[in-house]
């Protein structure tokens, strides 16, 4: 126990001695250098920076800018920011990651000159979202969003159920026209097999035209709606039943790019 206490004291004492030994008095600081002489004191011409530019002065990150300079009467020309000593006249490409100021120091026997240029770095805009590749083809959009309108025998007025359909169609068609700026929609007028083929051409045209008028009233641009009557030439259904006839008395919407 006694031995341990003695050892501790020795260590502590040693440390105390060591600490006292390390302490130094602060050194006497050197006097400041004399201010640089600016006047001509017969020691030679002072350095002159004729030009120091950055072109362009504003870059997007990742691009580069060119520093150009021209200095006369210099014994040594340096540029900071890691460029170092350069010739009296020259250029250097820089591509700072962020806005940086380049300071040029030209030493001359008769005096020094200092100039600085700043290259501003702007961050590039975020990339545009990948081209909204129309998620669905025109055909698909027409099929899913635009519904055919049906008519009564030998009639071309839009029925009550047709009005509701056309209200929805108008919005869908406007959206489609927005996404497909060159698209045109054919309004195909169809009739059932009972009327004359000849008269049905006229009737199909009436059906297309009345649908077009209705859509135009809802703000769909008229020139992009093209009526075309197929009369009874292209039936959807070929049986001689009322269900089938109703199927055929319609205006069918077809998108054309």
């Amino acid at each position: 126990m006694k031995q341990r206490t003695i050892a501790t004291l020795i260590v502590v004492g040693g440390l105390a001695l060591f600490a006292a030994g390390c302490k130094k008095k602060p050194p006497v600081s050197a006097p400041p250098p004399p201010p640089p002489v600016t006047g001509t004191t017969g020691r030679g011409p002072a350095a002159v920076i004729d030009s120091f530019t950055a072109e362009p002065s504003t870059i997007v990150r990742g691009e580069s800018s060119t520093l150009r300079w021209s200095v006369s009467n210099a014994t040594e020309v340096t540029i900071d920011n890691g460029i170092g000593t350069v010739p009296a006249t020259g250029s250097r490409q820089v591509n700072p990651a962020q806005t940086a100021t380049y300071r040029m120091t030209a030493k001359g026997s008769g005096g020094d000159a200092i100039a600085a240029v700043t290259v501003a770095v702007t961050t590039p805009p975020p990339p545009p979202p990948p081209k909204a590749a129309p998620s669905a083809s025109l055909e698909e959009r027409m099929r899913t969003a635009v519904q055919d309108v049906f008519f009564d025998y030998d009639r071309s007025e839009v029925r009550e159920d047709g009005r509701a359909t056309l209200q929805r169609n108008a919005d869908a068609i406007k959206a489609i026209f927005n996404d497909f700026p060159s698209a045109v929609i054919s309004l195909e007028g169809h009739c059932d097999e009972r009327g004359s083929a000849e008269y049905n051409l006229g009737l199909g045209d009436r059906r297309s035209t009345s649908v077009r008028e209705f859509l135009v009233q809802l703000g769909v641009p008229e020139p992009r709606l093209k009526p075309i009557s197929y009369g009874k030439e292209r039936p959807f259904c070929t049986e001689s039943t009322e269900r089938c006839w109703q199927e055929n008395r319609r205006v069918h919407f077809v998108g054309v790019q």
Binding site: E198, L201, G202, D205, S208, T209, K226, P227, I228, S229
Partner: peptide, 9 residues
């Protein structure tokens, strides 16, 4: 043909 959506018969 006249400029019309339909010319027929």
């Amino acid at each position: 043909n006249p400029q019309a959506s339909l010319n027929a018969t």
